[in-house]
Computed example of a mutant assay.
Amino acid sequence: MIKMLHSYWAYLVFLMMIIATANALIKHFGKKEYTPKDFRIALFTLIVSHIQLLIGIVLWFAQDYFGELSVGEVMKNSALRSNAVEHPIAMILAVAFITIGYSKHKKKLTSAGKLKPLAIFYTLALILVLAKIPWSIWF
């Protein structure tokens, strides 16, 4: 059940990350004004990504990767290493980037000042997610 929820919720997170990143980049480079809609997009992306992280942490503990295997055995197996170590670390960093970008943008007063941290940090988060999504499972 948790794995299914984590898998389906990931589609929403991925969609919101693409929308938020594209929105921030287009508006930043187009020198457009920051609007309440931009705030809602950034906030919703922050919320869904944090929920996904919490579901992922529960799933990681439920999987018990290190229960029967040693750390060395997990690290030698590339598929297991990807699921147990690389994917979780990349996703934690991605959510951290989203959180940093959102926090920095709230402190700024101008449209350019608000859109720049969103564009930078949401782009970094999207790159990390694209790099570590288990694409073979997705399609």
Rank of each mutant, 00 (worst) to 15 (best):
I127Y: 07
K27T: 08
A62L: 11
Q63E: 14
F139W: 10
I133C: 05
K37Y: 15
E68Y: 13
A42T: 05
W135P: 05
M1A: 10
A119T: 04
Y34D: 05
L118Q: 08
A24K: 05
R81T: 07
K3I: 08
L130A: 09
V71M: 13
P88E: 01
F29N: 12
K132L: 05
A90E: 03
A20C: 10
N23G: 06
P88K: 03
Y11D: 04
A94N: 04
I41G: 01
K76F: 12
E68W: 10
I120H: 06
A96L: 15
I133Y: 01
I57A: 01
L15K: 01
A94Y: 04
M16H: 02
K32L: 15
I100N: 05
R40L: 15
K114P: 11
K132F: 11
N23W: 04
Y34T: 06
A22P: 03
T45M: 06
H87W: 09
L5Y: 09
A79Q: 13
K107E: 12
A96G: 12
S136N: 11
N23Y: 09
I98C: 01
L12P: 00
I55E: 02
G67F: 13
P117A: 10
W138N: 07
T99S: 12
A96P: 05
F29H: 13
W135K: 13
I41M: 04
I100Q: 04
E86K: 09
F39E: 12
F66A: 13
P117I: 09
L5P: 02
A125C: 12
S7E: 05
L59W: 07
F66C: 11
K27M: 10
V48R: 00
I26T: 10
Y34W: 15
A10Y: 00
L53Q: 00
K3D: 04
V58C: 05
I55S: 03
G113V: 15
M17F: 02
L54P: 00
S103T: 14
K114C: 14
F29Y: 15
S7K: 02
S7M: 09
S49E: 00
L109D: 14
V48Y: 00
Y102P: 01
T45L: 05
V74A: 14
A84L: 07
L124E: 07
L59V: 06
A79R: 12
H105D: 08
L128F: 04
A112L: 14
M16Q: 01
Y11E: 04
K32V: 07
I89Y: 10
L53P: 00
E33Y: 09
K108V: 08
L80H: 08
